[in-house]
Each structure stands twice: as structure tokens, then as C-alpha cells.
Nucleic acid binder design. Sequence first.
DNA 1: CTGAAAGCGCTTACAG
DNA 2: CTGAAAGCGCTTACAG
Lengths: 336, 336
Amino acid sequence: MSATLHDVARAAGVSIKTVSNVINNYPHVRSATRERVEAAIDELQYRPNQAARSLRSGRADMIGLIVPDLRNPYFAELADDVMRAARAHGFSVLIEQFDAERDSELAALRGARRRGLDGVLYSVLSLGEDDAALLDEVGMPMVLLGERIFHSAHDHVTMRNTEAAYAATAHLIAAGRRRILALGSHPGEVVGSAGLRLRGYEAALAEAGRELDPRLVVPVDRWHRIDGAEAMRAVLNSGVQFDGVVGFNDSLALGAMRVLLERGVRIPEEVAIVGFDDLDETRYSLPALTTIDPGRSEIARVAVDLLVERITGDAEVAPREFLADFHLVERESTRS
Amino acid sequence: MSATLHDVARAAGVSIKTVSNVINNYPHVRSATRERVEAAIDELQYRPNQAARSLRSGRADMIGLIVPDLRNPYFAELADDVMRAARAHGFSVLIEQFDAERDSELAALRGARRRGLDGVLYSVLSLGEDDAALLDEVGMPMVLLGERIFHSAHDHVTMRNTEAAYAATAHLIAAGRRRILALGSHPGEVVGSAGLRLRGYEAALAEAGRELDPRLVVPVDRWHRIDGAEAMRAVLNSGVQFDGVVGFNDSLALGAMRVLLERGVRIPEEVAIVGFDDLDETRYSLPALTTIDPGRSEIARVAVDLLVERITGDAEVAPREFLADFHLVERESTRS
DNA sequence: CTGAAAGCGCTTACAG
DNA sequence: CTGAAAGCGCTTACAG
């Protein structure tokens, strides 16, 4: 078995409390004592037992990240950002994925509790406003990412969906595009990302004095590449004319772009495209995709900061909302 | 505070041992007793304290996955596969990323120990054969993924690099390609993936009675998209003629493909390309990329199985090696 | 600046 | 089939 605090204390000729003080960088330890203890630690290859520490202190120094799917590059990049932010606070990150079904999402939330985490970042997907009560059952500090639940008692970090979609659409209008497709709507949705982004699209058209042509608002099921490709195929087959596309995320835009290129449509000459998310790969597509940088790394950093504050500090602060700064990244797909 | 075993025991009128038996599905509990205990658990919303459980049992039911970088889709997809495999055994996965520097890799290994994990899956990058001793210091069950360290005392799960590269190259030869680029070599490397794949490339040429033209073996620094793009640019500028490319991974192949398309080279008519890894996105590139499916989900499953066996079972079994089955996935980039 | 004691909430032996 | 006791390895709160 590996060495314990007692073994180190015995070897260094001090009490276990003093060893604990050294390990936890308690400042008032005489430096001679500290050195003796450190020598014993090295000698015995002592490593604190995390379970014992956790049991006594009530802290695991670990947070959960509950996301739909790491194969989706958006969440993989978010996970990377979150892990870096957490590390800066000395926290590890346990990632829990869930599938498209609601039950799987609830199971992931319950799992967080079972695993003895200190708190969770939860990227809401299927749960809606009616589920706010379920969130309270999680029973630990939680920060929400994403859009669905607006009136919950939790901190909430997200992007400026509507403003960003406005900016993306206005960018195409300024480039002289007359008929702009909104690719990725979820009909009937109001508070989700799709609803908010559609609002920005509409606002930009209204601002420019354009009529909204409902045939240009293209609904999709999910926001994966395949959905963008299929929707674009349907649009092309329907004969609707357009010269610009606002993809509600990069995957949709990339899927649509692939179909356009396949059909021999020139980008950006005939059709200009903007996406959303600034995925790493948008820099490497051909043409490189103009997109909205939603401030994801800022979102990750702020979300971790808020969560750590809840974990370590006063839990009685009122729920906070943070909206990250975004900006348009202009690349080849809209450059004339 | 939340309820403890004692609270439940008191409410159900039994000892804490009986509650523990119910929670752990110990079979010999009278069903009337079980029901009474379960009612008390529901009533009090009791959840076992994971730290206490862990301290007493010596098990955390958590494994580490140490990988270079989740932004790299290969590792994101691997992480997804590993998490699914681990869940089937009731284990969670703590992901620890490291950067390109050796020190960061060592820190990740040390962190695994500090976090009280039961074991780790470690995807070796910078550490070499000389570091085998360091691996033993990790002091917990470990399964290696990848190539670098061959003679270690640990289980090792990997793909058939040489055979797969042979198959990729042979596929291009069979399609009538005469001058095939090997994109992604690491000069001087023997036991790493690059060395092994180069060997397969060479073997396929030899088998077909072709001479090896050293100008067709293109070294790169790392295996990211940008490296494939830059290397391809250099090749095109050098004037070396070729009609086929074996990219040593998909990212290199996709980066090279982008540059070829930019220069107006037709794929596959003028140049056919094969990659390695079967990343999700190779299905959606234009043209879709022919690639090697290295059996990654099998690798993840077997690696988790071996690790769980080490954790729960007899640790004295000799180190095992497992090579996954691969296959060539033919898509547009080589289809004539 | 350091120590002796208590106890976090479980599971593990053992007993009956 | 169930119970009473011990103890996993720390940190906390207190004392000096």
C-alpha cells in the first residue's frame, strides 16, 4: 500500500497536522519543518488520498460538463475551453454525454449528483421551461449554457444570438445580396437558439426594408452537417432562387456548401454563405467559411468562474446572466 | 445537509448495514425489508456519498483518459467511444488533455494519480522508449493507446498501422496510380505511427515492383490540417509530379485536398487521395474522402475492457497487446 | 507555529 | 437474513 499522512508524520517526526499544513500550503510552517516534511514526502512517495480529502472537506475539486455529444465539434471545442478554464482553478472536469432523448439528458443530470461532483455546467438541449423544477433536484451548484430554459434559478451564460444573426444577415445585405436563405429554423420555437437567430435575421431584413419571403426560411430537424446538406438539396430542387445563406450554425452551413459545390454553384460569386460558431474547421473548408465567433472561450471561462464562485463562496447570490461578445469573422465564402 | 445511511436506517428501522446491502444489491435481503428501506431512501432523497464509498472501498469507479487534444477530431471521437465503453462498466471518464510539450504530458500522468482514479487510458505522444520507467511511477492500472513505447510492462491496444498503410497504397496502385505521395512521414522514426505507416507504403510499392522515389515521401512536423496544406503547397511548388496521395491521417489528407482544389487539380481524376482514421467529417468533404477505418471504437472498447479487468481482477496477468481490425472505406476521392 | 482528538459516511470483516 | 464495531485517510476545530 502507499504511504499515508501518518507514515510521513512518523518519518519527519511531526504530527499529521503539520504534514497536512505543508501539503495544503498553510503559510505558518517553519521552513526547517517544511523541508523535513517535504523530504519525507519525497522519500515515501506520498500522495494524498483524494477520497479521504473529499470526504472530510466536502469538496471533490471536480466539476461536471454535461453536453450532448463530443463528436459534434462545437462541444469538443467547448470541452477543451472548459477544461482549460477549470484547470486554472484547480478543478478537473468530468464529461457526461447524453443522447437526443430527454431521458438520457435527465440521467446525465442525475449521474452528476451520484458522482459526487462539486457542481455542473449543463448545456441544455431537450429540457424546456416546464422542466425548471427538475433542475432544482440536481442539488448542487449549476450553471446553464445555451438557451432553452429562461426562467430558472440558475446562473446562465450564453451568446448574443439575435444580435449575431442580425450582424450575419446585415453582412450579406451590405454585400448586395437580395434573396437570403435562413437555414436551420425550428418552426414555433421562440426562446431557443433557432428562434432567437431567426429574430435577428428578420430584424436585419426589416431594417433594410426587405419583405420576408417565408420560402427563404428553411426548417431543419437537427443542426448537423447532414441536415444542412439535405435541406439545401430540397431548396435547390424546389427551384427557389437565392444568392445568400445564413446558416444557423457552421455544420449546417458546411453541409449546405457541400451540396452547392456539388451542383456547380460558385461560392461566393453566385451564393454567399455565413455560418455560426467559428469551428476550427471553418478556416480550412474550401472556400473558408465566414462565420460568427460567438465568444465560446469567453463563455467557457465565465461559466467556470461563476460555477467556482458558487462552489466556494456565498450561494445566496441571485442568479446571474452573462452574454458574451461576438464578432463576425469574414472569410472567403462571402468575400467578393 | 443531505441524508446519510444512518438517517435512512433510522427511518426504516434497520441497521445501516442493511441499508448498505439494499443499495449495493446484495441478494440476501428479505423483500419486505428491501421495500421498507427503498421507501425510506425515496422519502429522504438519500444519495450515497461517493467520497466515503471510495475511501472505504478503495475504488472510485472512475478512469482517466489522457489525450493530447480534444479539438483534434480523432481524439474527440475516441473520447466519445471510450465514454460509451466505460459507461457499460459503470465507470465515468475524467479527461486530461496535454500539450505538445513533454512536460505537459508528464503532468497529465501525475494528475491522474492525484485525482484518485482507478486507472488510466493513455494515448502516448511525446514520451519515448526511454521513458518506460516513468510510466511505472503512475502507480495504477494503465492501458496504452498508440505506438511510441513498445517495450513497456503495460497493456497496449492499437491498430494495424503497417497493414493498413499497405492496403491504402495498394488501393491506389490497383486504381492505376503510378506516382503516389506518402504524406506525413517523420524522418528517422521507426516505432511510431509514421514509421509504421511508411513501412506499409514501401511494402505495397515493392510488392508491385515499383521503385521508391524519395521525393514522393513528404515529411511534416505535426499531423494537423495546416501541416497537410503546407506540405502540399511545397510539393506543388517543387514541380514533383504525382497522381496519388496516401495521407498518414485524415487531417493531413483533408489539408492537402484543400490546396489541390484551390490550385484547380481535379480529384480523383488527376490525383486520387486516401486518408487514415475515418473521421466523421471525411464523409462530408467534397469529394468525400476514401480512408482507413482503423477500428477505433473496437480499440476503445477493448482498451476499457482490459483496464477494467486490471482494476477489478488479478493484476498479475502478463501485459497484453491487442491489434484492431481495420478496413478501407472507399469514397469519392479515389473512385474513378 | 504545532499537536491531540474527533469525525466526514461509508464498506468490510465478523458474529449470530 | 441482519447487526454492532472498526476503520479507510484525511481536514476541521480547538487548544496551547
